[in-house]
């Protein structure tokens, strides 16, 4: 299945755009997504950490993804 992944902050620089499309197996998990992203964008591995948000909520690695989900990469936040 194809999922659209929004990017913010330094992730936007790493992806070279504000979103990317990633091919995942059916009932792919957040962990699968991270693996695919890191394979295509190795610089992600140099970040202190990063999270994945699904439908505006921080997602656990085991969470299942669907093509209808709003998915975003959340690099270390620095508001305030």
């Amino acid at each position: 299945m194809k999922v659209n992944v929004l990017a913010f902050g330094i992730a936007k620089d790493i992806f070279g755009g504000s979103s990317v499309e990633i091919e995942l197996p059916e009932n792919g998990t957040t962990q699968n997504l991270k693996q695919s992203l890191e394979d295509r964008y190795p610089r992600l591995r140099h970040l202190v950490s990063y999270m994945v948000a699904v439908n505006n909520e921080y997602a656990s690695d085991e969470g299942l993804l669907t093509e209808r989900d709003e998915i975003a990469i959340i690099p270390p936040v620095s508001g305030g």
């Binding site: 902050g9 330094i10 970040l47 975003a72 690099p75 270390p76 508001g79 305030g80």
Partner: peptide, 19 residues
């Protein structure tokens, strides 16, 4: 809160807390 801050210096810019 998913807000990010980029610091702009005279010789470049840095996303805070990223690396």
């Amino acid at each position: 809160v998913p807000i990010w801050k980029k610091e702009i210096f005279e010789d470049g810019e840095v996303w805070v807390a990223a690396h």
